[in-house]
C-alpha cells in the first residue's frame, strides 16, 4: 500500500483537504475525488489539451500534474468559469459562434482561451491559432473557436467585457 499524503488546495474558490496517494494525477483527483468531471482526459501524455486547467491562474495540463504538486495552489476548472444561466464572456462567445460540438475538448480549450484573455495582448487570428495549438479539437475544424476567442479578446481589450469568470483577472 502506498502511503497517502495530506494536501490542501483551493479549487474554484473552495478549499479542500484530502489524503491522497502521491502518484494520483490531478485529473483523477479533480474528477473522482472532488466530482468535478468537467475536466476531461484525452491522452494522459500532455498532447491533446483536454485536461487543461488553470493552476494559479496559468494554463496547465492536469494530466501531467500530480495532485500532491497542487498542494497549496489555486486551481480553476471549467466548473469555476461560469454556470448555466451565468456564462462567462468566453463561454458566451463559444456558444454564439458554435465553437463546440461534442464538447469534450471544450473545458481545456476554455482554460487556454482564458489565459489568452488574461494576457490581454491583441492577437491576429494566426496568433490565436498558435496560442490554441496545444488543444486538439476533432469536431469543429477550429474555425468557430478562433472566431469566438477573437471576439472575446477584442471585447476584453475594448473594455466591453461583462460576465467574465471569477478568476479572469
Amino acid at each position: 500500500m502506498i502511503r497517502k499524503r495530506p494536501i490542501t488546495l483551493t479549487v474554484n474558490g473552495s478549499t479542500y483537504a484530502r489524503d491522497i496517494e502521491p502518484r494520483r494525477l490531478l485529473t483523477d483527483f479533480l474528477r473522482e475525488d472532488l466530482g468535478l468531471t468537467g475536466t476531461h482526459v484525452g491522452c494522459e501524455h500532455g498532447v491533446c489539451g483536454a485536461c487543461t486547467v488553470l493552476l494559479d491562474g496559468n494554463s496547465a495540463r492536469a494530466c501531467l500534474c500530480l495532485a500532491v504538486q497542487a498542494d497549496g495552489r489555486d486551481v480553476t476548472t471549467v466548473e469555476g468559469m461560469g454556470e448555466i444561466g451565468a456564462l462567462s464572456l468566453l463561454q458566451e462567445k463559444f456558444r454564439k459562434h458554435h465553437a463546440l460540438q461534442c464538447g469534450f475538448c471544450t473545458p481545456g480549450m476554455l482554460a487556454t482561451a482564458h489565459e489568452i484573455l488574461n494576457d490581454a495582448a491583441p492577437l491576429t487570428d494566426a496568433e490565436i491559432r498558435e496560442a490554441l495549438s496545444g488543444n486538439l479539437c476533432r469536431c469543429t475544424g477550429y474555425e468557430h473557436i478562433v472566431r469566438a476567442v477573437s471576439e472575446a479578446l477584442s471585447e476584453r481589450l475594448g473594455g466591453a467585457a461583462t460576465g467574465s469568470a471569477p478568476n479572469a483577472g
Binding site: P22, R23, L25, E44, H45, G46, R61, C63, L64, C65, L66, V68, Q69
Partner: peptide, 26 residues
C-alpha cells in the same frame, strides 16, 4: 526528481518509468 513534470509525467503515465521515490523540487 520532478519539477514541472512535462517530460517525466508522460513517461510515468505510460508506465515507462516506475520510480520508488519522486522528489518534487518545484
Amino acid at each position: 526528481l520532478i519539477a514541472g513534470g512535462q517530460s517525466l509525467m508522460p513517461m510515468l503515465n505510460f508506465r515507462l518509468l516506475d520510480p520508488a521515490l519522486l522528489v518534487d523540487i518545484s
